[in-house]
Every structure is written in C-alpha cells, then in structure tokens.
Design a protein around this nucleic acid. Structure first.
Lengths: 254, 254
DNA sequence: TAGTGGTCTAGACCACTGC
DNA sequence: CAGTGGTCTAGACCACTAA
C-alpha cells in the first residue's frame, strides 16, 4: 500500500547525486552536464538508466535538455507576484513593476489582438453565450529576455466597443480607465489558481518539457455584477511564487 | 531549439490513447487498467514501453499504481478553496464548510501537538530567532475518507502562552478568539503559493508518487506588525483549485 | 504460487546539432 | 561527419500482492 518510491533504484540515486551536485554548485547554471554515455561509464550504468535519471531532473525543471546538444543546468530565478488588498498606493503591482523590483528587465510583446468567438470556458466566466464575440489580447512576457509568463485577455465586444480599447497597448490601469469611460467601473476581482501540465504551445514559448507543470491563474474582473474581462495567466510553476495579502474583517480561516 | 516533445514516440501515443479512453469513461474510476503485459500485447510493444506510458499517466495523477496489484483509474474530484475579502458573512470559508458545500464529508485528524524549536523558514516568517520555541499543530484532513490536505501551524510560544491554546481542538475562529483574549487581535493575512514536488512523507499520506506536484500555501497571520501564526497547507496540485476574491480600490493589475 | 508492477542490460536505430 | 539525446527491444530479475 505504500506508494512512496523506495529510493534504491539506481537511476533515482543518480538523479539524487546530480541534484545535489547542482545544488552544491558543482555544475553551474548554463553549464552542460556530462553526456549520457559519459555518466553511464561514471556510474557503471546503461545509458538508458542515465536517460531516465535525467528525465527526473527535467520534470523538476532543474535541467533543460536540448536535443543533439546536451543537458544544461537551468537557471531558476524565482519570481514573485503579489496581490495586495487594499492596494497600498495606486497601481503598485503590474508585471513590469514587479520585475523591476526583482532586478529584472521586463518586456511585454503583443502577440495578437483580434475579435473571436468566445471559447467555452471564457464564455462561461464572462456570462456570454458560447461563441459570443470577444476582443482577444494575447501577450508574451519576458524578464531579462527570458520568457516567463503568458497572458490572454478576453473582453466581451459589447463591453469593449471595439478592439481599439487596447490600442495603443495599455497597462491594466489604462485599460480599466477606458472601461470606466464606457460606463464599466471595475469593482471586484476573482482569481482562480490551478496547476496543470503545460500545453504544447505554452511549453514551446516557455521552454518547458510537456511533463512540466504550469500555474494557470484565471482572473475575472467585474463591474458590479457584470463580468467585463477575464485574463488567463500562465506561469512555469517552478519559477514563480504567488502571493496574496488582505486585511482581517472578522476573519476565520482553516 | 524546439523543446516540445514530438508525440510520435509510441509510449506517448499509448499514454494518449489510455488518457482518452479514461476520459471517455471506458475505464471507470477505481477500475483496474489491463496489466502491462496485456497492454504490451495489445499495442505490439515491449512491457518496458508500456511501463513508461503508464508513468506519464501517474505523474498526471490520472492513474494510481499499487505495486503487485495493478494500475487503477484515479478519481480526481477537484476541490475548491476560496478566500473572500472582505468575508461576506462571518467565517464562511473553513475547510469543513467548503467540503460540505462540495458535497463531501470532512474530517480533520490532529496528528501532533507539541512545542518545538522553530525550523529556519518558519522562524523567518515569524520574525523569530532560529530555534525559538513554537507551538506546532499538525493536522491531516480527509474528504469522505480520502486524504486531501495537510496542515502544520506554528505559533510562537511567547504568543500562545502554552500548547493549551489549541486544546480542545479549535477551528481557526476559535483560535483567533483566544489569541485576541491574549491581546493579539488579528489584522492581516499574507498567503504565498508555491508549486513543488511532494516530499516523501507528504506523498505517503496523500497517496501520491513523488513525481507529483503539490501546492504549498504558506500563510502568515499578523496582529498589527507582529506575526502571530504561520500555517503551511499542502494540497495535491491536481485535485485543488484555489480561489481569491477581492474588491477594487483604485486597482491596477497585469 | 501465479500475477502484478519496477528496474536494468546490451545493443540497436533514429533525430538533432554543429563542425 | 562525430557527438549529443530519445526510443525501443528481448530478456532477465526483483519486489509486492493475493490466494
């Protein structure tokens, strides 16, 4: 009934040793691990077993493998994302601000801006009929030129008026100001966090194996009872820490 | 440079087919998959390859393998955990309440109540010197007798006075009331969410492979500037959705 | 005991990279 | 081209479960 893996398996031991060597700094970030045949010789194992060991490290995000080149120690800068309620001073928590605070150089790339029929989940969150028109804004985010985040925003066309609501590219504050001008004053946020495997296209952009996990944060923005926007953010799970802060008001928690 | 796995590998295809069969309900939750030799025959593959395919499904949490018995389709009831700010009415979001709302039968088991020196991370969050005495309360949570969550609470002994602060076993509301009686009125919460591999002991209790991910939610509870409690919650990542809600106050987000 | 899953080998072949 | 990683086989042996 015990589901815990006995760590006696040789390939697990190898993974363990490599893991420790990396943590001790014997292999530096960016550096290449010894090749699989070489490790096989060193540990007296078959290449197949070595391959298995390295698969573990890949799934953990500790190592990044480039086919035909080698296995490289992954630099894993943990990034933090904070939501404060109420906000201490104005719009303190945009992506760009947080990256700069962490000493990283932020860049956002607008991948696509279009009007599309709403996919199922989105329609549901926005209270639309499936296929109802939504303005879709898709962005890729980089920190010091490393891809770190992916965001897709959906706004019902009836709320947005037109795609121009997001042109020229605006930060969220700008967007919500424009929504307010159209009579939709933002009053409430809901964020749902989910952990799942990366989709192939996400894995491609974020440089992950499809065995790796991402955090999906789906936010719905309300103006009164009316959902006016939903944003799906996708983060490599190993590289982020999400943080929420709020004040007590007769609180009780578990 | 493409890091996306080509899905041509036979073992990936097998995993894909089994995944679909499970989603179509061809294999029901709790049911056993065909044995590995049998699948090997069916797909014209070696058992080794089948084993690899099933390893993928394990890591996804879709299948639970019991050594010597077989591979069983895992029931994955997604559970939701919500934090509302401000709370709509009193203490609406305890573990027990949320489980009942989801139609599940909650049970909490007090595993251990003791006074210990504070571990590094805990001391840091509580603003203590490492090793400073803390009251440790460790709980296991079940939903309809399935282990679903794990919680360890740490309170500085100077704040708690004694272990009795948590005896008889109290819900959080009760705990915070007792803290208030001791002059610590809770005013602020911070929660940090992190995704990581399960530790062996966690994997044991939660019934996971150590390849599977958990969500760790570390909460710090403040009375003014004084941290009075920190709680570490651990959830099987695949089985939970975390949710946060708050009101806008001149908001701006990314 | 027979049936289940987990590991390992020795060797093969393929795919990709970079010279 | 040589060197890298990825997949697959045929067969072996081990560990665990249930009868």
């Amino acid at each position: 009934m015990s589901v815990v893996e006995t760590p006696r398996a040789r390939y697990r031991q190898v993974a363990e040793e490599l893991r420790n060597a990396i943590k001790r700094g014997e292999y530096q970030p960016g550096e290449m691990l010894p090749s699989q045949p070489e490790l096989a010789r060193k540990y007296g194992l078959n290449q197949t077993s070595i391959n298995r060991a390295i698969a573990l490290l890949r799934a953990e995000g500790l190592v990044r493998v480039e086919h035909g080149r080698g296995a490289f120690v992954q630099l894993v800068p943990t990034v933090k994302r904070t939501r404060r309620v109420p906000r201490p001073g104005g719009n303190g928590s945009s992506f760009a601000d947080e990256m700069r605070k962490a000493g990283l150089d932020p860049r956002t790339e607008l991948v696509s801006l279009r009007t599309d029929p709403a996919p199922v989940g989105v329609a549901e969150r926005l209270g639309l009929d499936e296929g109802g028109p939504v303005v879709v804004r898709e962005r890729h985010m980089f920190a010091s030129e490393r891809p770190v985040q992916l965001a897709i925003s959906y706004i019902p066309l009836t709320v947005a008026g037109s795609e121009d609501i997001a042109v020229p590219d605006v930060g969220p504050t700008g967007l919500y100001k424009r929504l307010a001008e159209r009579g939709y004053v933002v009053t409430r946020f809901v964020e749902e966090i989910e952990s799942r495997r990366a989709h192939p296209n996400e894995a491609g952009f974020l440089g992950l194996t499809d065995a790796q996990q991402v955090l999906e944060v789906a936010r719905v923005v309300f103006a009164g009872e009316q959902p006016v926007e939903t944003v799906v953010n996708v983060f490599p799970a190993q590289q982020w820490r999400l943080s929420y802060e709020w004040n007590a008001e007769g609180a009780g928690l578990t």
